[in-house]
Write a protein that binds this DNA or RNA. Structure first.
Lengths: 341, 341
DNA sequence: ATTTTTTGTGCAATCGATTGTTTTTCTAAA
DNA sequence: TTTAGAAAAACAATCGATTGCACAAAAAAT
């Protein structure tokens, strides 16, 4: 009990050298079957576990990557992580996940601690209010590869994987217009975050294209969570400023809005049509089911890792600065009037 | 550029020894202010980063804990992780998260790899179909502390943090009976998992207490996900075996059931009352809002880490085998008829 | 029978930081 | 001027595994 055993313990017990033990355990071809067998026996006997830290120190590689994301409790992120883990485990890599909880200091801390030789590379989705990229530049300086996904820094010095948020948003708005809506409001996120900026751009551009003038009070810039959605609706009602459609940069505030509107007796989609973003678990089950942009998060995670792997293996030049994946506008009841009246 | 710098590089540049540099960087009292200042200057100049792996190897401790859970995309788990991280970061510990995706092999692999000297302790919620605890026993043998939470192994050799699932389930069932329901069905999980077994026990016991005979086809043992809930309802309807209430061991299948029942024209809670388990993000927003058992996951995460910390600091004897936290039966519209008809 | 090749091991350095034990340097008291 | 004592820095071992090189023994070729 107690005291982990090392290759030296095994070596001593067998009267051979640690180097021989090391090679035997790794099934090196220079070691006789006889010795290999005895080494493995003793190893089991002593409950020997390879010390990963010593290996890492020696090899300068940990075969571990760090995934740094704002929050875990979004379907988008947990699903992207599943994609990352899928491909990573095939390639023999371990995945460490760190949550920044939308706090730049935590992001810096996580990147700092993981980069202290713990990981070989990073997959990062940046925090909301990032405006200072020094910690990311630091990684570049140290030669640690990084792939950003979804929320990327707005600077083209970094590689990223994403969908075309601008296009997806335009399509969503165009779809609402095609359903006969003109007073289309928009829930926007913090504009310093790339994707939310893009989504808002897409909304504005599509509206212009459609010849609809967007009034300033049609756009609600706020945290993209449930409560914000509910509050936005209360404000609309108080100021008697009611839309006939909403395009939201996230499904979460839209869920809040849906609930609030229904509480006030509005009918969805008859009075107000809605399209969200993210295709959360709950989205197909709201009433009516929520139309939304599916970002194919699982695929995005897979591609992020594939690209990272290339960078780690020194083929960074094969990885484009920007990989754009296809998205999907999922149309459900919240923006679609069934034929029968 | 490239090539990380070590304390040796700093030492060489200043014509002093690495040990002096090491002490200077750690602000050791034996080093003169003069030298400390110069060392720090050069360190910044060379963009020196302390190599965490080397430190770990030397010190035998990583100040990192591993959290091993079945899945990330459950509110319960992501919220528990937030609790763990909260307390851990205060105590100067880093948190590594691994997902097992309900696969024992992945669980074994994760525990194995993290235990190879990467973490000082574990917080684990076990996989569904675990029946072999050898990998956990291995940890005990190596003297690595482990705290289980929520889903714990059904063996009293391990320490755990949980709520009283038996009691909570009984209360839920009793609440449904108090609302005048007698034909109360139950969505049960894999009975080899502690908590699901407990919840089913709680259901059965409460029913017996209430003098209601549970028929075998009242209990639906299945994976606890959305699809299973929907399918269960289809089966009920096909066999014309309709309940007047359901107690589900998880909110997810209940969401599926809710949706399916409504599709078939049943009214909730008038025709069928429902109580779930987990208080997921969507639960307050279903229609009607879902009654459910809140497990206080954030608190559970915090306590799990606090207990683990004690064990890691050698005060394992202060930590009880079993810590039971309070739960809360959250009653919402799915099990509660408003007074007005 | 001698040389060459193959095969199996041991030796020792290495990864980067830490730390107990000298050794050197400096200060101040005798 | 000598020397005890403190302060500062160097020396060297250590953590555990890996790996190039050397070297011996056994097998094969001449």
């Amino acid at each position: 009990m107690g005291k982990k055993s090392s290759i030296y313990d095994i070596a001593q017990k067998l009267g051979i050298t640690a180097s021989t033990v090391s090679r035997a355990l790794r099934d090196h071809s220079n070691i006789s079957e006889e010795v290999k067998k005895r080494v493995n026996e003793v190893a089991r006997e002593l409950n020997y576990k390879r010390n990963a830290i010593a290996v890492n120190l020696k090899q300068g590689s940990t075969r571990t990557i760090g995934v740094v994301i704002p929050q875990l409790n979004r379907h988008f992120f947990s699903s992207a992580i599943n994609g990352i883990e899928e491909v990573a485990s095939e390639a023999g890599y371990n995945v460490i996940i760190c949550q920044t909880r939308n706090d730049v200091r935590q992001e810096k801390k996580a990147v700092q601690m993981l980069s202290e030789s713990v990981v070989d590379g990073f997959i990062i989705s940046v925090v909301t209010d990032v405006s200072d990229y020094s910690h990311f530049r630091n990684l570049q300086d140290q030669g640690i590869p990084v792939i950003f996904f979804d929320r990327y820094p707005m600077s083209d010095e970094f590689k990223r994987v994403s969908i075309d948020d601008f296009l997806a948003s335009s399509q969503a708005v165009t779809h609402l217009a095609a359903a006969g809506r003109t007073k289309i409001f928009h829930f926007a996120g913090d504009q310093s975050v790339s994707i939310w900026h893009e989504r808002t751009r897409g909304y504005v551009s599509a509206m212009k294209q459609l010849g609809i003038t967007v009034k300033p009070d049609w756009i609600f810039k706020d945290t993209l969570n449930l409560e914000a959605g509910m509050q936005a609706v209360e404000r609309m009602i108080l100021s008697n400023n009611i839309p006939d459609a909403i395009f939201s940069s996230s499904d979460h505030p839209l869920l809040g809005a849906l609930s609030a509107f229904k509480k006030h007796g509005f009918r969805i989609p008859k009075d107000i049509a809605m399209v969200g973003y993210g295709n959360e678990i709950f989205s197909p089950f709201t009433e009516p089911p929520m139309s939304t942009v599916d970002q194919h998060s699982y695929e995005m995670g897979k591609l992020a890792f594939t690209n990272l792997l290339k960078c780690m293996e020194g083929a960074a030049s094969e990885v484009p600065k920007q990989s754009v994946l296809p998205h999907e506008l999922v149309i459900r009841g919240s923006s679609f009037l069934p034929d029968k009246p």
